[in-house]
Amino acid sequence: MTVGIVVFPGSNCDRDMAWALQGCLGLPTRFLWHGDTDLAGVAAVVLPGGFSYGDYLRCGALARFAPMLKEVEAFARSGGPVLGVCNGFQVLTEMGLLPGALTRNRDLHFLCEPCDLDVQPGSCRLLADYNPGERVQFPIAHGEGCWQCDDATYAALEQAGQLVLRYRSDPNGSRGSVAGVCNASGNVLGLMPHPERACDPRLGGVDGQRLLRALLG
């Protein structure tokens, strides 16, 4: 039982994620190179933050062609837990595993600050250890985190309980202050805030620990 962290050219939160998973939580972890295809022994997959393929064309647009992501897509569609953080969230939307799209922050600033989030009632497996309505704090660090979708999609997602994390105070213009979205089956979660930066008490908070632990839950 290992958590796999996909490493793309341009990933820069892969080692933070490994530190949080293995260093702070003691979960077995290994890196999955984007060009490989071996998911043997991997029980959960994380797509980390960064700038995969330099964010060329659109954030996350080129990562979906990586050989490893063909495997990850099949893994996700068969119910395996997949977590995308920041650029990983952008990749999941470009792959079509999560709805909506991430665009430039409303005020164009790169935002790097702690953010209060409300956990919404929903069926996301990776948030099962949080109470609905619970407030948590994860840092954000992004320039393109404004989540958008059309009216019909938004209504359907809200109805289905897939808008699972919202900012207390919307920093980037996201529709409905949405910070995180899960798929209909609840096994794929994408969020712009960084739970891996809220796992070490020396960094000011450990609200992210339960989310990461749930990967091997």
Binding site: T103, R104, N105, R106, L108, Q148
Partner: peptide, 14 residues
Amino acid sequence: QLRPSVLDPAGEAT
């Protein structure tokens, strides 16, 4: 082009 319904903060700043 961005859809008309999508905010274009870079365009607005320009």
